[in-house]
């Protein structure tokens, strides 16, 4: 049992606890903060899986922007009185989730992982170690390549160039879309409860 595995299990447990907190706690702000914790811990998990660039992206994007965005949204939509956080039907949801979890775990455990072999990808031939893989496949540091910024960058701009461009277009669309949707108009200023609309004034 090496340090990496131990670290993984510890961090994984922490992430699970944090996530449980996100969905179970009664305070919205606590939810948001626990979400930040969960996402950050996941970033650490990425680090343990030797993709440091991905961990960086995770922290930057999720913790840095998504969480802040969520907190802003929470603040902008303050309830006037204390609201109950969960539905009436939450036992059903819990049951369903447990069932789904059981199904997923069962499928995972029941799979023959030994028969799964690495394949050749577009970035280059991989080391075929199918014969030397033991019964439960392990990923060893010397087998998995480290994916730092250079490797990611190369891949993004050569093999995955088209999805990259499409993703940038999607981001543009999302930007414009959210601008349009969230824009203030005269009608809503009347209906808004105590919220001052943006300084833009009426619709153009």
């Amino acid at each position: 049992m090496d340090l990496g595995a131990v670290a993984f299990y510890v961090v994984a447990t922490a992430t699970v606890v944090a996530s449980l907190g996100v969905v179970l706690t009664r305070s919205a702000v606590y939810s948001a903060l626990l979400l930040i914790a969960s996402l950050a811990l996941t970033g650490f998990v990425y680090l343990l899986m030797l993709s440091d660039f991905l961990a960086l992206v995770q922290i930057l994007v999720y913790v840095g922007t998504v969480s802040i965005l969520l907190l802003f949204a929470l603040m902008l939509t303050r309830p006037r009185e204390l609201q109950v956080m969960n539905h009436r039907g939450w036992p059903l949801a819990a049951g369903g989730s447990v069932v789904a979890l059981v199904a997923l775990v069962w499928t995972t455990v029941g799979t023959n992982w030994a028969a799964l072999t690495p394949r050749v990808t577009a970035t280059g031939p991989t080391v075929s170690t199918s014969s030397s893989v033991s019964s439960s496949a392990r990923f060893a540091a010397e087998e998995v390549r480290r994916f730092g910024p250079e490797e990611i960058g190369t891949a993004l701009f050569t093999v995955w160039a088209v999805p990259f461009e499409i993703a940038s277009v999607v981001l543009l669309i999302a930007l414009i879309g959210s601008l349009l949707i969230a824009r203030a108009t005269d009608l809503e200023d009347e209906a808004a409860t105590g919220t001052v609309a943006g300084a833009e004034g009426g619709s153009a």
């Binding site: 991905l54 992206v57 799964l116 990808t121 280059g124 087998e143 994916f147 990611i152 891949a155 981001l171």
Partner: peptide, 19 residues
């Protein structure tokens, strides 16, 4: 990491998912 350790396609996929 399991299937494509040298190519890292899943990691790139994950980047897109985050995006």
């Amino acid at each position: 990491n399991r299937i494509d350790p040298q190519g890292g396609s899943g990691i790139i996929f994950a980047i897109f998912v985050i995006t």
